[in-house]
């Protein structure tokens, strides 16, 4: 029997497979399809202080090797997430959850972190400083090291739970951003968020997305994500949740070999809703074929 257990800053997961925030809602739709309690964890829908409807339509564009989204953090707001969504999710997923939080100021991040700190179902707080869709021109905290450090330090103070900072790939030096997070007390790094992209409807002669730009995800970004995980692994001594275009067991193994402790699966859930549960089965089988006894043995080996 191979060992798929992994540890994220002291939180032990049965396997490294985690649906990525924004592609899994609060689990309800998927729980109708399979037993979601078999997943390693769940990073639930990015939560903001206030309820958000998100951006104007259209918010989705297809691409050759992935998709663009400009949903814009639609969510019912932290009060409803705590009162309704997490209790429902905790009933069908009795393991530590990853709370993905998004603020528009340091104060909002602190408030969200304090709220999630009081929620026993939450095991890890994932600080989304990098949503490309909620500020004009795609500006976000993660494009500035000082801002990222400030928010990381403030969230670190506001909770006792492990804090993972989710970084944007839309930066000059990802390793430098990760170092900033480490210096500010982060317990881990999640990467990568989506790459800022664009499509144009050549018949209408206009951008496809109402928001003009959107976040590019899917298989096309996997090599970029892998490279950035590798760079961050060499720059900091923190556990990494690797994500970006993963859809197969081999992708997971590559990501772990680049240095990831666990992985998140995003866009693939939207094309094949059974992707995560299939990977839960396929990963140990593939590890056995490759003679890998545990993920610890191959982490960062490449």
């Amino acid at each position: 029997m191979v060992d798929t257990k992994v540890s994220l800053a002291g939180v032990v997961l049965d396997n490294p497979i985690i649906p990525a925030s924004g592609t899994f809602g609060f689990g309800k739709e998927f729980s109708e399809l399979y037993d979601i309690s078999k997943l390693g964890s769940i990073s639930f829908k990015g939560t903001t202080v206030e309820p958000r409807t998100g951006n104007a339509q259209p918010r989705i564009a297809d691409c050759k090797a992935g998709m663009l989204n400009a949903v814009g953090l639609q969510n019912p707001g932290v009060d409803a997430v705590l009162a309704e969504e997490i209790p429902e999710l905790a009933k069908i997923f009795p393991k530590p959850l990853i709370a993905n939080i998004s603020g528009f100021s340091e104060e909002e991040f602190v408030r969200l972190a304090e709220a999630m700190d009081s929620e026993p179902a939450v095991g890890i707080i994932e600080v989304n400083v990098s949503c490309p869709n909620v500020h004009a021109g795609g500006v976000n905290f993660a494009s500035d090291r000082k801002e990222t450090e400030k928010i990381t330090a403030a969230v670190r103070k506001a909770t006792k739970k492990p804090v993972f900072v989710k970084l944007s790939p839309n930066v000059t030096d990802i390793a430098d951003m990760a170092k900033g997070c480490e210096a500010a007390g982060a317990d881990g790094i999640s990467l990568i968020n989506t790459l800022l992209g664009m499509r144009i409807d050549i018949k209408r002669r206009k951008p496809v997305l109402a928001n003009r730009y959107g976040g590019y995800s899917g298989p096309g970004i996997f090599p970029v994500a892998l490279r950035m995980v590798d760079q961050v692994r060499h720059a900091v001594d923190l556990p990494i949740i690797g994500m970006g275009g993963i859809s197969t067991a081999d992708d997971i193994i590559e990501m772990v070999m680049a240095g990831a402790s666990a992985v998140q699966i995003g866009a693939a859930n939207l094309v094949d809703p059974w992707t995560c549960i299939r990977l839960v089965d396929e990963l140990p089988a593939r590890m056995e074929e490759l003679g890998i006894e545990s993920l610890d043995e191959i982490r960062g080996i490449a």
């Binding site: 924004g22 592609t23 739709e29 259209p58 918010r59 989204n69 949903v71 859930n269 939207l270 094309v271």
Partner: peptide, 14 residues
Amino acid sequence: GRMACGFGACMGCT
């Protein structure tokens, strides 16, 4: 209209 998943997960069509 324009949507991604079609089963309520992505909020793309809201």
